[in-house]
Amino acid sequence: MPSSQKNVKPWFAVREPLSQKRATCLTFLSFLMPILIWSAFSYLPFLWHPKVEITQPGSVTWLQPGTLIDKAIFKEQQILAEKNNTALPEGKPANPVYLPAPHEVVVAFYTAFTTEPKRRSEQWLHESLWHSVTIVFWGFFISTLIGVPLGILCGTYSVFNKLFEPFIEFFRYLPAPAFGALAVAILGIYDGPKIAIIFIGTFFQQVLVVANTTRKLDIALLEAALTLGAKNINLLFRVVIPGILPNLFKDLRILLGWAWTYLIVAELIGTSSGITWFITQQARYKNFENVFAAIIMIGIIGLLSDLILATMGKRLFAWENSRGKIA
């Protein structure tokens, strides 16, 4: 076969899956690209770098090594020094303090776990993180405990649908943080109101999403069950629930992500705590590399938990995927 006829699949083919190798490569690239852009802005002095970090104050008395000043002001001082024939200040291009370089964040990532808290009343980073995880867990857990059964009922019986969904439809438009003050008044200043905010942010969406998933169950399966003699409670427990489980699981994965997005607001309510407390504290000290590290940590926890759930789903619902027929 001539080489020009070689069966090379095009990269851009509408709705064609990519080969495993290409897919892995692109996944890697999707993480690498933002890191590369970040690195470029951090390590290439001619890219952006609007500040100057002073290395030699020269004759300028108010400058000190390490001070960050605007490029324009630095230029002014240089010209001034030249005119007066005094020692020139020296410096190198630098980024504002709020954009730490990748390596600084990596170091911060490590030291954040190994540095003792400044005061005894303060928590280690992993303690803060764990506290955040428990807040999300309880908010999501309580929401799921009520929301999933209610959603399934709404999706199965018109009575529940008409009784609950209109109000929930209204309530879900109310921003969860708006209930912060109320939650504190009712539940105190510690974890109670935080869990409540996560609950409010998750629950109302959850009922509607689960109800919708339930309604999407193929009606033919229910009809088949009816002709086989299934009734009422059996239809619900033997057909509806097992039938929607895989999609329900997917819904919960997405909703868990939403619960996480309410975390930061929730933790600002009452006494600041958890990872949010860490972030605000570090931002106050202008330790932005720590802020970056903490934000990335939240992302990693989210991604990891989702990956674990996705693998679990594949295991649990093996009957769903259509790979390999045995006949």
Binding site: A225, T227, L228, G229
Partner: peptide, 30 residues
């Protein structure tokens, strides 16, 4: 509907979460 009139549909209506055996057992258990 009732089990005295069995029905086979045009579309596939086996319960995908049950094995062949459990599918056939469904009506009997009901």
């Amino acid at each position: 509907p009732g089990p005295d009139r069995g029905m086979v549909f045009q579309g596939y209506t086996l319960f995908p979460w049950l094995t062949v055996k459990r599918n056939v057992m469904f009506g009997l258990e009901m």
